[in-house]
């Protein structure tokens, strides 16, 4: 109910995602509201994982797939985000090569459109080549399931319950995957980099 928009006839802006999706079964065009509410963040998720060019196409694929499956949406969940993230993650799964390529690219380069105003000093410090190398190298090397959980939590800020719903796995599996992947990540980032990170974070 925080994300408000509107379309015709009813002030759909006051409806939950679930109510809009339910409505879109008999009024397909109202599904545009779901796009307007969530496409910016789904696009960013796809762009984070697949790069800008692929994301532009895949955000349309994601919402078209969601629209085709709208009758299967469980309206007990008012918020469509976990569902959409699940579909987007499936789309990512069909593009593993692009995903790995994206992480390899970002190991070396800041994206051209880096959001400088929002990047605080920590972010600046974190962009140090050495850390980027290790972090994106680690991401590229993770198993698919571990990486899905990690990035839905760290980048998309989904709750464990939401990740479980998105990936259709038990919440216990979310926890255990996250624990494992964070141990891996810490091990890779540890040692010589620990000091740099602590310095970067404490100065932030």
């Amino acid at each position: 109910m925080n994300r408000l928009r509107r379309v015709k006839a009813v002030d759909v802006s006051t409806l939950t995602d679930a109510a809009v999706i339910e409505r879109s079964v008999r009024d397909p065009e109202s599904f545009a509201v779901i796009f307007d509410r969530h496409a910016p963040s789904i696009h960013r998720y796809l762009r984070r994982r697949l790069g800008a060019e692929v994301a532009d196409d895949m955000v349309a694929e994601t919402f078209l797939a969601a629209f085709r499956r709208r009758e299967r949406f469980d309206t007990a969940h008012p918020d469509a985000r976990p569902w959409l993230y699940g579909i987007a993650t499936n789309v990512v799964g069909q593009h593993r090569r692009e995903e790995e390529r994206e992480y390899r690219l970002r190991q070396a380069h800041l994206p051209a459109t880096s959001e400088a105003p929002y990047a605080d000093r920590v972010a600046t410090a974190v962009t140090a080549q050495s850390l980027r190398q290790v972090l994106f190298g680690a991401l590229a090397g993770l198993s698919n399931g571990d990486r899905d959980v990690l990035l839905l939590v760290a980048w998309e800020e989904l709750t464990y319950d939401e990740v479980a719903a998105a990936l259709d796995i038990p919440v216990g599996t979310v926890r255990s995957r996250l624990n494992r992947v964070r141990r891996l990540l810490r091990a890779e980032l540890g040692g010589e980099f620990t000091g740099t990170i602590e310095e970067a974070l404490s100065n932030g």
Binding site: S41, E115, A119, L150, L185
Partner: peptide
Amino acid sequence: LRLLQQVGQEIPLA
């Protein structure tokens, strides 16, 4: 996680 979040923020919303 925070480190990861920082690099995630390099990508803006569409």
